[in-house]
Amino acid sequence: MTADAAILPGPVTASTEVATRRRGGPSRRVRLLGRYLLLSVLAVIVLFPIYITVVNSLLRPAQIASQPPTFFPTHPIFSTYSDAWSSGHLGHYLFNSFVVTIIIVGGQVLTSILAGYAFAFLKFPFKRALFVLFLATLMIPFEVTVVQNLTTVVSLGIYNTYAGLAAPFLAWGLGVFLLRQAFLGIPRDLDDAAALDGYGNWRFLWRVAVPLARPSIAALTVFSFLTAWNQYLWPLLVTKDEHLSTVQIGLRQLRGTSLENVNITFAGVIIAVVPLVVLLVVFQKQLIRGLTAGAVKG
């Protein structure tokens, strides 16, 4: 996997571009303006739904219904956010989401590291067959197994618990594959050197292999966080009471409230999005690596 190729901000050589632009005539300048105009129009379209959500979250319900719609709130109402937080139990749902997501991410990263190391560094019978079996899990979408998994979770006595929310996702075939690839990229000489220096497999794993695979582990972490946080079907099925609802399910309850509460619904949506925005701003690179790993690898 080539890490740098996957990182988004592409080759921007602004200075040379500026130089060529100065030399260009008026038609060139017009074309350039056209490009920026097109980009900006598209940017507005992409951002519009989120923008209008933010605006509407700051309006009184009557303003939301009015014609023409308000696009620039002159007297924003911020109390909608505290209303959404308290009446929508969003604080509680966010907490649930964090707990479940952290269990899932922790479990997935751990099982992926362990299994990925075995497949990359150790020699054992049935290695190929087991690896194929691990990859085969990727061909079975979760939706296919959801019927029986619900029964399983009930009979394990973890229905309507954090454990039940997280259990099916504690291992992930793509995660194992990703880390196996990362470990295979570690030069064999390091393994040999460590063996001579007196490090067994277990200590080599944690002191050398894991630190060296950090970029891939980070990518897996962020990607895993994103998918776990956004889960909808499973939390819907496996929880019975609102006490265990995640944010995504919380949004379901905010939706469909009457017109008087529409602004609160919008505020709730924004609250639910903020943690991910923060995560993505901080870990943009890792996320993009994780997302594109599959595409690059095929």
Binding site: W229, N230, Y232, T265, L276
Partner: peptide
Amino acid sequence: TSVAVASVV
């Protein structure tokens, strides 16, 4: 955004 966020919006 998530599916839920987009759908509610």
